[in-house]
Amino acid sequence: MSNRGCRDSFERQVVVNPHPDVTINGDSTKLLCRNASLQLNASGAQTWSWTPAQGLSCITCADPLASPLQSNTYLVVGWNSFNCPDSARVVLDVKQPISVRATGDTICSNESTRLLASGAASYVWSPTTGLSSAVVANPVVSLGQTLRYQVVGFDGFNCFSDTAYTTVFVNPTPNVNLGPDLLIPAGTEYQLIPTVQNGPVVVWRWLPSFDLSCFDCPAPRLFVRNERMVIVRATNIYGCLSTDTLSVKPFCDAGQVFMANAFTPNGDGVNDVFYPQSNGKVEVKYFRVFNRWGELLYERTNFYTNDIKFGWDGRARGIIASPDVYVYTVLVVCADKTEFTYKGNVSLLK
């Protein structure tokens, strides 16, 4: 319409051409093993352009062969006969080769440790000797001797596998033996002498340490007082440890202490002294000698049996007594506090 109110009109036909519907076959993300190929198939158009060109057998065809070495996203643009475009994308997730690693350990025989594999999704170990499982990354292993293992790892996509090796080194554990349990007279000094296999032992520990001559030596002496357990821990040059225990049960009876029935104090060094003797070391509360008329000739108190310096040398008032039969009494106390009294006769001979 003009400014004077005049009207006019014009008609023209407009043709709208359709866009193509471009698609790529299958999923929008595809898995591909490195060094493998995958056929891509685009449809819905007549002419094509793929980008990027890297890894494609062609960029202007509908179905290029894709062989990328790394993951990539490909764009395809397609034009129909009217030169109208459409596009689609596909992601190629390229799986790379794996590198499997394995670690072993050094252990003592019949101890346990763990193997460890890494770098894969699943594993198979061989041989299966000593393993808690052959299909986990970290099986527990217990062995008596050194063994080399192979582990094959798989990536989980059926693309790649890899193999690694590791060794479990097994050092010998010592075998220490204290022998059979002891039933032994109270007051005895007993030498503990363990037998050892797979030595040498470089560290000794004896527990508990009371009544032992040493706690870190190979063969301590034990003074037997009361019922107890003795524990020994032996460590060899490989750091492997062995333990054994010994039950010690002391006993006291009247036959433990004995007295001679005659002695000859003539200075020849043989049987010159009369004194309490015993199996083991027993405390003597008193030791007394009388003549036939009941007169006290000799007395000693608070010492231990088998100590000749507390014995009677046959002297009375500094003079060797005359040959005769004399009477003695002895009171002893065992390590378990049991008391025994001994009375008897002894002949003094020339």
Rank of each mutant, 00 (worst) to 15 (best):
M1D: 13
G5K: 00
R12K: 14
V16P: 06
N17C: 09
N17K: 05
T23V: 11
D27W: 00
A45Y: 02
W48V: 14
P52N: 10
C58E: 15
I59D: 11
P68D: 04
Q70V: 12
T73R: 07
Y74H: 05
S87C: 15
A88Q: 03
V91F: 06
V94M: 02
P97K: 03
N110T: 13
R114L: 09
T129A: 08
V135D: 11
P139V: 11
Q145I: 12
R148L: 09
F154I: 09
N158V: 12
S161L: 04
V168Q: 04
G179V: 07
P185K: 01
A186R: 00
T188R: 02
Q191T: 07
P194R: 00
P200L: 12
R205S: 14
P208M: 01
S209T: 07
F210M: 12
M229Q: 00
I237E: 10
G239I: 03
L241E: 12
L241S: 07
S242W: 02
T243W: 03
V248E: 01
F251A: 10
D253M: 14
A254M: 14
G255R: 10
Q256C: 06
F258I: 12
Y275P: 03
P276H: 10
K281S: 13
V282T: 03
R288H: 04
R292Y: 15
Y298N: 15
E299V: 04
T301F: 05
D307Q: 02
D313V: 15
R315P: 12
I319M: 04
I320A: 14
A321N: 05
S322K: 13
L331K: 03
K337E: 07
K337G: 11
T341E: 09
K343A: 12
K350I: 14
